[in-house]
């Protein structure tokens, strides 16, 4: 692997993968820790956008500009368009169902 892409690119790949892992971990923690559907929708979509974004950037660097690298950049774009749309759909559905967002002092639900 080191021979194939050289030490600089390898370092970038490792760094981006770790960043991706970190933000995915944050996203997961948020889903468990936060109190209601709205705040969970925040972290499930947004931290995850960056998590998947960094991971795909690592893939793009590893794969190079040909073929797979270009396609993973398109995937990043796709995620950046669809993730907020999905989060909005969840939040809007919750709002129309009459779910009032949790505020400080409420019970956890």
């Amino acid at each position: 692997m080191i021979d194939a892409i050289g030490p600089v690119r390898l370092a970038l790949v490792v760094a981006f993968s770790l960043l991706g892992l970190f933000f995915t971990f944050v996203s997961m923690t948020g889903v468990i820790r936060l109190p209601d559907v709205y705040s969970r929708a925040h972290t499930a979509s947004q931290a995850d956008t960056l998590g998947a974004g960094f991971t795909l950037a690592a893939v793009a660097i590893a794969a190079g500009w040909e073929g797979a690298g270009f396609k993973s950049l398109l995937l990043v774009f796709f995620i950046f368009v669809t993730n907020p749309t999905a989060a909005h759909a969840i939040a809007r559905a919750a709002f129309e169902e009459g779910i009032v967002p949790w505020t400080e002092g409420d019970e956890r639900r």
Binding site: T43, S45, Q46, P84, H88
Partner: peptide, 15 residues
């Protein structure tokens, strides 16, 4: 605009 707001962590467009 709504998607940008949602993409920025900490804010989520509901309606």
């Amino acid at each position: 605009l709504a998607n940008s707001i949602t993409l920025t962590p900490g804010t989520l467009t509901v309606r």
